[in-house]
Design a protein around this nucleic acid. Structure first.
Length: 442
RNA sequence: GUGGGUAUAGCUCAGUUGGUUAGAGCGCCAGAUUGUGGAUCUGGAAGUCGGGGGUUCGAGUCCCCUUACCCACCCCA
């Protein structure tokens, strides 16, 4: 006998896990589409040279790679950005710019597992390629904002920064060539504190005390938006890059406000830098007020030239990615996920052995009205059928036997409240409305 | 990749310094109840104690290896 098992970091999803997962993906899809982002898909496997183009040894270690049957070196995509770069280089001539696409798909990384971190996981990216317009930055913030509201969050915060602010300061300080290391250290500020960050900057980047002090001084600015902007200005004064960064932040916040985003939901946080140094402008991180420890659940930013490895055409862009698995873990912890193992609200018991056709017709009628309906496949004892329906998480049970059929009614049972009522099946509109109301899907 | 922890029934766990036939609660199945679930009672199925090797008269218990999971670090395009 072969023992049934799954690979480390790879998971089966049972219905109870898959239902909220699908719901979340549907919400993301709906919000992305509402802004005009179009769906695309790309192959899971790419030529290794495409994937290895960027990134160093560390990335290599995480990459699933092997030779295919034609001895080609291939690899599984580890994110959706590199495939997008290749895709854009290949198809931008046909599609034109700006290209707005979303991509919801699995990616693979052979890294060590941890809570909320697996080797196969889902990313939900959206990007706007081919424009440097601040409007695209604003729109990105709006999408993130709408997305979290659509999922059902009220208490969340999108932290924004602009990479140019820091780059400008580093230019002034003569640390430009060390920016990658400085940014990586700075990204840990919230996690390990200023002393440790200073230590890391000194040790790994060779930054001087004064340089470190100024970087930290910048990073620790916080407060109301306008105040932050005012305090940033003198620190970057004289650096064209830095000044532009501050101006872009001002444009972004003003634009988001105009579109109705509450000020406390979009805050400037100069300390966020994102570990990756390929972001060049606006960067985003999204935190849940009720669960800050879980980290950013939606991150992204602006990049100057997405596809430079694959084409001469310059393709600036901006985008962000929803961390689906991490967010699901958070929602579970916050009690936002109902333990339900069926997507159908309505359960029809096969009560009278000779009435299957009536139950099937009833189910068809309700499905046509947009409800999910399951008819129990065996004429078992009613108690068992109801128990099954309750365990699965159906909301409404419909029971009908000789008495009901003769009276032209069915019994509508609220499975949660354990209450029931007889209701006439005619007129159909009123009947369907009653079922829907009880099912909670009006 | 580094360090630490855990692994016993479907789930949560107990199992005394190694000792006979491995337990409990919950869940599951059946019945009490031939038109009504989450309550009660009765009965039942279910474990090669994660896998492999070793020490021993004897291993769920001790040792080694291995796999998976959890925590921290590293890293995170």
């Amino acid at each position: 006998m072969i023992s049934p098992r799954t690979l480390k970091g790879f998971r089966d999803y049972l219905p109870e896990a898959m239902i909220p997962r699908e719901r979340l993906m549907e919400t993301a899809r709906r919000v992305y589409r509402s802004y005009g982002f179009s769906p695309i898909d790309t192959p899971a496997l790419e030529y290794l040279e495409i994937l290895e183009g960027k990134g160093g040894e560390e990335s290599d270690k995480q990459l699933y790679k092997f030779q295919d049957h034609g001895n080609r070196w291939v690899g599984l995509r580890f994110d959706l950005t590199v495939p997008l770069a290749r895709f854009a280089a290949q198809h931008i001539a046909t599609l034109g710019t700006p290209l707005k696409r979303y991509h919801i798909a699995a990616v693979w990384r052979g890294e060590n597992t941890q809570r909320g971190r697996y080797r196969e996981f889902m990313q939900c990216d959206f990007d706007t390629i081919g424009t440097r317009s601040p409007a695209a930055d604003i729109e990105t913030a709006l999408v993130i904002h709408d997305l979290f509201r659509a999922i059902g969050f009220e208490r969340f915060r999108i932290r924004i920064n602009n990479r140019m602010v820091l780059t400008g300061l580093l230019e002034k300080l003569g640390l430009s060539d060390k920016s990658a290391g400085v940014l990586r250290a700075l990204d840990k500020l919230a996690k390990i504190g200023p002393e440790k960050v200073a230590q890391e900057m000194t040790e790994t980047c060779g930054a001087g005390d004064d340089q470190v002090r100024q970087v930290l001084q910048l990073a620790e600015i916080s407060g109301p938006r306008d105040e932050v902007l005012e305090r940033l200005k003198p620190l970057v004064a004289g650096s064209q890059t830095g000044e532009e960064g501050v101006a872009r932040l001002a444009e972004l916040t003003a634009g988001a406000s105009a579109a109705g985003v509450a000020e406390e939901r979009l805050v400037i946080d100069v300390s966020i830098a994102r570990g990756l140094d390929y972001y060049t402008g606006t960067v985003f991180e999204t935190f849940l007020d009720d669960l800050p420890g879980i980290g950013s659940v939606c991150s992204g930013g602006r990049y100057d030239n997405l596809a430079e490895l694959y084409t001469k055409q310059e393709l600036p862009g901006i985008g962000a990615s929803l961390g689906l698995d991490r967010l699901l873990a958070a929602m579970e912890e916050l009690g936002m996920i109902e333990p339900v193992a069926t997507p159908a609200e309505v359960f029809i018991a096969w009560f009278d052995k000779n009435r299957l056709h009536d139950y099937l017709a009833l189910a068809a009628q309700l499905r046509a009205a947009g409800l999910g309906v399951e008819v129990y496949p065996e004429p078992k004892k009613l108690g068992q059928q109801l128990k099954y329906a309750d365990r699965r998480g159906h909301r409404v049970a419909i029971i009908a036997g000789e008495n009901e059929f003769n009276a032209g009614t069915v019994q509508l049972k609220d499975l949660r409240a354990a209450r029931q009522q007889d209701i006439a099946v005619e007129p159909a509109d009123a009947f369907i409305a009653a079922v829907k109301e009880l099912a909670g899907s009006v």
